[in-house]
């Protein structure tokens, strides 16, 4: 990884974390807040592939777990977003040149990520994971993510691609 790419990823993740917690959460969207960090992780993984996608997911998830006002077990979002980054990264070849396919994949990633987070919380015995909260909040959160993705995902993917070595030759030797 070149330094420019690492810096871009770090900057994007940090900005997404701050905007999600301090800006988006204060706008009274009913029931949920858009998962900006999840969208950024998925968009970056779509460009960078599964290995880097897993690392980016882990870093983004860890950020979500520790940046205030987070509470609960540290490592839950790291686990979930690491898997999301890996799965989404595996589709990075298939989305070359397509416009709609990345959005569909990111929508699926949002559903899987949010459901996965609830399941992990339930498995480790978090008393807060209540079925009624899950059924009312999660679908709304997925909806917000889907609505926000056409604005966030193409932008992040374009930014990431500018730092990529995009020749086919380079890809085959990676």
């Amino acid at each position: 990884m070149t330094y420019g790419r690492v810096l871009l990823v770090a900057l994007l993740l940090a900005t997404a974390a701050v905007v999600q917690t301090a800006v988006l959460s204060r706008i009274p969207f009913p029931d949920a807040t858009p998962d900006l960090v999840l969208l950024v992780v998925a968009a970056l993984a779509l460009v960078q592939g599964p290995t880097r996608g897993a690392v980016i997911g882990f870093a983004g998830g860890l950020l979500l777990d520790v940046v205030p006002p987070a509470d609960g077990a540290v490592g839950r979002w790291a686990l979930v977003l690491c898997l999301v980054g890996w799965f989404v990264g595996r589709a990075s070849d298939a989305v070359e040149g397509s416009v709609v396919l990345p959005l569909l994949i990111v929508a699926g990633a949002a559903i899987a990520g949010l459901a996965g987070y609830a399941v992990v919380g339930w498995l480790i015995g978090d008393v807060r994971v209540i079925g009624s909260t899950a059924t009312t909040v999660l679908p709304v959160a997925v909806l917000y993510d889907i609505l926000l993705s056409p604005f966030v995902v193409p932008l992040v993917m374009a930014l990431a691609r500018r730092f990529e070595v995009t020749t086919t030759y380079a890809r085959t030797i990676r």
């Binding site: 959460s25 807040t33 998962d35 205030p68 006002p69 509470d71 609960g72 987070y117």
Partner: peptide, 15 residues
């Protein structure tokens, strides 16, 4: 209050 935790995190927190 400068930030609020998301509802889909199942926790009710504020910063």
């Amino acid at each position: 209050v400068i930030a609020v935790g998301p509802r889909q995190g199942f926790a009710w927190t504020a910063e």
